[in-house]
């Protein structure tokens, strides 16, 4: 391996490709990504076994209480959290807000969540994510939404669920909708798939790919309302590749115990005896509120298209 060969190696170097972006998402599989609002929480999250942290100004439950316009967290908050941990640090931007995303990319955040938890900046268009070297994750309620986001360049899809409620029902609904639609597709012929693609407003090649794979073509996490180890195990049983926990960790009575238990539950999701042990002594979960107590306007999942 002389200098000449090393030179050739460097010339072939490529950053920010689909392979590199989707590869990053694959490394998160089987893991728990935790919402944090400062360096101290980020450190706790890493110590409990999180695979990554998500930097926010405040967790979704507090965003709900406060009301007003929710934006990207301050640059200082993102930087403080990125500097604290050795695991990846992600940040959230408003739907369609390309400038916020450029700022997070410039900071060096490892992944960007174009998130309905923040107030959307564009009613109609999501960010053109192919144009970024930083990978994106986006929320989806059904297969059409998931494939539209993948078409725009998302390297990871998560259920939207109903963030900040501690009510897992919507995440369950969204994951079942995605899986159910793919099962339906598997039984269809070419003609039927073409019609279906039109119906769900998704590009045909991605519809075909999902049908062939029997799953989404990118990593598929659960998010929105996950508050206990059992919630996390439930979402894994539904075929999710991993879990985002928002208010569920630092809104719990004992964040460290809850964090550790949710990490362990994701690995042992199909072992009831172990889940029982894991679920002991974790303290109370976040208080939460049922999503049925929210008006349609108060629900975050209807943001974005």
């Amino acid at each position: 391996m002389g200098d000449k060969e090393a030179g050739t190696d460097l010339e072939s170097l490529k950053r920010g490709t689909e392979l590199v972006k989707r590869g990053f998402a694959s490394m998160q599989k089987g893991g728990v990504i935790m919402d944090v609002v400062n360096a101290e929480q980020a450190r706790i999250a890493e110590d409990t076994g999180a695979v990554a942290v998500m930097a926010l100004e405040s967790v979704p439950a507090d965003i709900r209480k406060r009301g007003g316009v929710a934006r990207m967290a301050p640059v200082e908050t993102n930087e403080e959290i990125l500097d604290e941990v050795s695991i990846p640090a992600m940040g959230k931007v408003r739907i369609g807000h390309e400038a916020e995303a450029r700022i997070l990319e410039s900071i060096g955040m490892d992944m960007i969540d174009e998130s309905e938890v923040l107030t959307p900046a564009d009613e109609w268009n999501h960010i053109d994510k192919r144009d970024f070297e930083t990978p994106f994750v986006c929320g989806a309620r059904d297969l059409g939404e998931a494939l539209r986001r993948i078409d725009e360049g998302a390297a990871m899809i998560r259920t939207k669920g109903e963030a900040g409620t501690g009510d897992v029902a919507e995440a369950v609904r969204h994951q079942k909708a995605i899986k159910g639609a793919i099962r339906e597709l598997e039984g269809m012929n070419t003609e039927e798939r073409r019609n279906y693609a039109r119906e769900i407003e998704a590009p045909l090649p991605l519809v075909e790919e999902a049908a062939e794979l029997g799953r989404l073509p990118v990593v598929n996490f659960a998010a929105g309302g996950i508050a206990t180890p059992a919630d996390a195990a439930l979402m894994m049983r539904l075929g999710c590749d991993g879990i985002f926990v928002g208010s569920g960790i630092f809104g719990a009575e004992d964040p460290e115990s809850m964090g550790r238990a949710i990490v362990e539950a994701v690995n042992s999701y199909d072992d009831p005896d172990e889940l029982k042990e894991i679920s002991k002594n974790v303290g109370g979960g976040m208080k939460g509120r049922s999503k049925d107590s929210l008006s349609e306007e108060e629900q975050l999942q209807y943001r974005g298209n």
């Binding site: 190696d9 990053f24 060096g108």
Partner: peptide, 16 residues
């Protein structure tokens, strides 16, 4: 760990 940097510095290349 993370010897090349964060995800922004991740890459693909041909190596011997």
């Amino acid at each position: 760990r993370n010897a090349f940097g964060g995800q922004r510095e991740s890459f693909e290349a041909d190596i011997a």
